[in-house]
Amino acid sequence: MVPIGVPVEHVIALAVALFVIGVLGVLLRKSVIVMLMSVELMLNAANLLFVVFAERWGVARGQTISFFVMAVAAAEAAVGLAILIGVFRTHNTTDVDELRDLLEQS
C-alpha cells in the first residue's frame, strides 16, 4: 500500500477551509443549533489533519486520536443540545442575540 498521491498542502488547505467555515458559523449564525453544527465542522477539520499526518508518517496513532475526538464530540453534542433544550424552556428562543443574561442590566 502507498499513501495517496495528493500533496499534503491540499489536504491541509481543505482542513483549514472547513475549520474557518466552522468558526464563521459560530460567529455569524444566530441560531444556537446551527452554531453547535459548526462546532462539529471544526472538530472534523482537526480530525482530518490527524488522519492525513498519520498516513504520511505511516503510524496509526493519529487515527486512534481521531477516534477519541469523535467520542468527545458525541458527548459535547449531547450536553450542548440538552442545554439548548433547557434554555429554550426558560427563554423560549434559541436566538443568541436574545440570550443576554451575561449583560449586567439584562
Binding site: 459560530v26 460567529l27 455569524l28 444566530k30 443568541v96 451575561l102 449583560l103 449586567e104 439584562s106
Partner: peptide, 14 residues
C-alpha cells in the same frame, strides 16, 4: 466587548 452577546465574546476570542 462586554455587550452580553455570546457572539461578541466569541469573536474577540477568535
Amino acid at each position: 466587548i462586554q455587550n452580553g452577546s455570546l457572539q461578541r465574546y466569541a469573536t474577540v476570542f477568535a
